[in-house]
């Protein structure tokens, strides 16, 4: 019983997260400006991280946690580097 409930909930939330990633992808390709694309990329990182956590619940393995943590770290670093690039036109100055 509880396995069935959880299976359904995980499936629903994975569908939601996939749709969210699609929305972010739309904004990533559509633009119109560079800052919109960077914002969409940041949201896409969050979607990917949450998706990995739901995979962890589906398989019952804590291995996915490390991957989610790495994605969260990379998302922060890349978005701040891109924001700096938008402001100055170069990352290292």
């Amino acid at each position: 019983m509880s396995a069935a409930i959880l299976l359904w909930a995980v499936t629903i939330s994975q569908i939601f997260l996939a749709l969210a990633a699609l929305c972010c992808g739309f904004r990533l390709f559509r633009g119109p400006r560079a800052q919109d694309r960077v914002l969409a990329l940041d949201a896409l990182y969050v979607c990917a991280m949450l998706m990995l956590l739901t995979f962890g619940i589906r398989t019952g393995s804590t291995l996915y946690f490390e991957a989610a943590l790495v994605i969260a770290l990379l998302g922060f670093v890349s978005t701040s580097a891109l924001a700096k690039f938008l402001m100055r036109g170069e990352v290292i100055e």
Binding site: S13, F16, L19, A20, L50
Partner: peptide, 18 residues
């Protein structure tokens, strides 16, 4: 189940807003 659906639903709403 409730927490998962709530969390992913809110994420989806944020992406729709995007």
């Amino acid at each position: 189940a409730l927490l998962l659906v709530l969390g992913s639903g809110l994420t989806l709403l944020g992406a729709i807003g995007l």
